[in-house]
Design a protein around this nucleic acid. Sequence first.
DNA 1: GTCAATTCACATGAAAGAGACCACGGTCTAGTG
DNA 2: CTAGACCGTGGTCTCTTTCATGTGAATTGACGA
Length: 401
Amino acid sequence: MEKGLGQFFEDYLEQESLFTNKEHLQPNFVPETITHRDEQLHSVASILAPCLRCQKPSNLFVYGKTGTGKTLTVTYTTQQLESVAKKKNLPLKIIYLNCKLKKVADTEYRLIAQLAREFGKAIPPTGLPTDEVYSIFFKEIDKEKRIILIVLDEIDVLVGKIGDEMLYNLTRINAELKNAQLSIVGISNDVIFTERLDPRVKSSLSEEEIIYPPYNALHLQQILEQRVKLSMRKNAVAEGVIAKCAAIAAREHGDARRAIELLRVSGELAERDGSTQIAIAHIDQAEDTIEKDKVIELVKGQPKHYQATLFSIFDLGTQRKDALFTGEVYEHYKYVCQQVALRPLTQRRVSDIIGEFDVLGVINAKVISKGRFGRTREIFPSTSQGLVDNAKATLSEELGL
DNA sequence: GTCAATTCACATGAAAGAGACCACGGTCTAGTG
DNA sequence: CTAGACCGTGGTCTCTTTCATGTGAATTGACGA
């Protein structure tokens, strides 16, 4: 071991990195050219263009599954708009908000507060009546004549949480503004989202709609190739690697984000191996790693009761191969709580928690009716056995079992 | 055998409580000139 | 006289509990053939 670590670091330095510029593989990277989204890009641009003439553009609604380039095209367009506006000194203000981010914009109060903050108003995180925040915001934007464009990303999450009233307020605010004009761009992953909206909101919000179809494998492949060119050394990728990444991502509704992540993680794994090229095997490995990291990461950040619930499911799941039901899980959960001196929650709550885990995709829970024997959720751990064991170990450590 | 009623074991919704956090205005207190 | 400490009030947020209502098909039991 004399030359152990020192040698390792030296070798590490010697070895040329696979990546030349990893930034281009980060999920929030905005490339200069956008592949296979010309049509959408064009639509977005022409809908939003009037704001350069100081006219209020139509409200716009953008849907499509995750990783279909919605956020990308919208941010790209707004960036361009902003730079033109700046050059010509046009009164345009663009605000981008991701409604999914906790503690930023996931309640009405926080959303409006955040918007007001964008205009340089200090709003306390809590304590003020919501109306007050509204009026602060209102006064602030109406101070001067200008166009304001609010981009609400993942708007479906927000509405799911707090209802659509706030969107109604926002769209209506225009009628009362004397100087400024406000337009909203909503981005949603949920395609049938607008059907659940109040018709009034729906009609005013989606004056224009753009739908993003999923990428197919060929598109994904070209996107990946473009990114590879930007971010990796020549010959860093073995034959067929890109095709395989694209194929995997295409299998899941053409999610480009996932394809890129897969490629990046494969690259990291290859580098760690000391290989000079990403091989197909690295992709399989990457798929596992990503999955595993996601679950472990998720498990770690959860509150105790969530952990206890998940642990109960995994624990029962390893004992038994067939489906679990809410009742059983709850019984086991109560037992687990007792072990770690935790006051158990009611079954009502645990039922919700199970539902949340289902949404997160850690478990698979389907509501079924067993006829005379009632109605319940049929629960399966949705990941592989190895992963479950892994997660279980993490959980029992976290819980202090 | 057929068909509607029953029944189970929860799911799902709504409302409301508890405990934290915070702003704001009023009052009190101690230090200063 | 004034700055700062210290309430009380009123507001939001999150997590829960409580209470109420809904649900889908296996089972049951009445009915008719």
